[in-house]
């Protein structure tokens, strides 16, 4: 298989397979959850489920001051790599083209130097986050294979992307193919690991807000 053939495969059938597993897996997981349903609450409501639920979906992004103080590292590092991932994934021109090709519309991109710097910051942060996970007693105690797999498949596309962007070590078609391949690995693994939180946290936060809101508490 030549480099170009590999690149063409990962852009073609490879991406096709990854997309099928990714999309099918996500929908499967979401409906698997939703189908379980929950019982109607028979107690008289003191507040609205819907508005509180929707508010919590957004408000839970920002911790209250005391929680921030207590979990400063987790929150700060979490912010950095989540924003970093967002910037790198969604604001890099070639990536936007991919989304545009699928969903039909695009949006303005950031200069590639900004993306480059963001990628470096994100990679470093993810490494620090892993070190912290290995050293913090609670995180280490809670961590299982899923956590490390999730970390690995997240940092891999960042690293391969960085290398491909700078064309280090190999020729561009191979590097880009490897980068896309690493993204495809992420897509295949995504629905069946904790990475699913990207979607399920909307449900979880909504439920959390709804449970509190029903009782008249702002969560």
């Amino acid at each position: 298989m030549t480099e170009t053939e590999l690149l063409t495969w990962v852009r073609g059938p490879g991406f096709q397979i990854a997309t099928i597993i990714f999309v099918l897996g996500i929908m499967l997981r979401l409906f698997e959850i939703l189908m379980l349903g929950r019982k109607a609450n028979l107690a008289e409501a003191k507040g609205s489920e819907m508005s509180s639920g929707l508010r919590t979906v957004f408000s839970r992004t920002i911790p209250d001051a005391s929680t921030f103080k207590r979990s400063a590292f987790t929150v700060t590092a979490g912010y950095i790599f989540h924003i970093g991932l967002f910037v790198v994934i969604f604001l890099f021109a070639p990536h936007i083209l991919l989304f545009k090709d699928i969903i039909g519309f695009g949006w303005p991109a950031l200069p590639s130097t900004v993306i480059d710097a963001t990628a470096v910051i994100t990679i470093i942060t993810l490494v620090i986050v892993l070190v912290h996970r290995l050293r913090d007693p609670v995180k280490r105690f809670l961590s299982n294979f899923d956590d490390y797999l999730g970390w690995f498949v997240t940092i891999l596309p960042l690293i391969t992307g960085y290398i491909a962007f700078h064309r280090i070590g190999m020729s561009a078609p191979s590097l880009i193919a490897i980068h896309i391949l690493s993204v495809e690995l992420l897509m295949v693994v995504f629905p069946f690991t904790k990475l699913m939180h990207m979607f399920t946290l909307i449900l979880a936060r909504w439920y959390n807000g709804a449970i509190s809101g029903y009782r008249g508490v702002q969560s």
């Binding site: 852009r11 073609g12 099928i20 999309v23 929908m27 070639p94």
Partner: peptide, 21 residues
């Protein structure tokens, strides 16, 4: 563009989503 998939992923996405549901 190089970053674009070579096949029609929109269709794939829709079918995969339907199958997933």
């Amino acid at each position: 563009a190089i970053s674009m998939p070579t096949e029609n992923i929109t269709k794939t996405t829709i079918y995969a989503a339907a199958a997933g549901v």
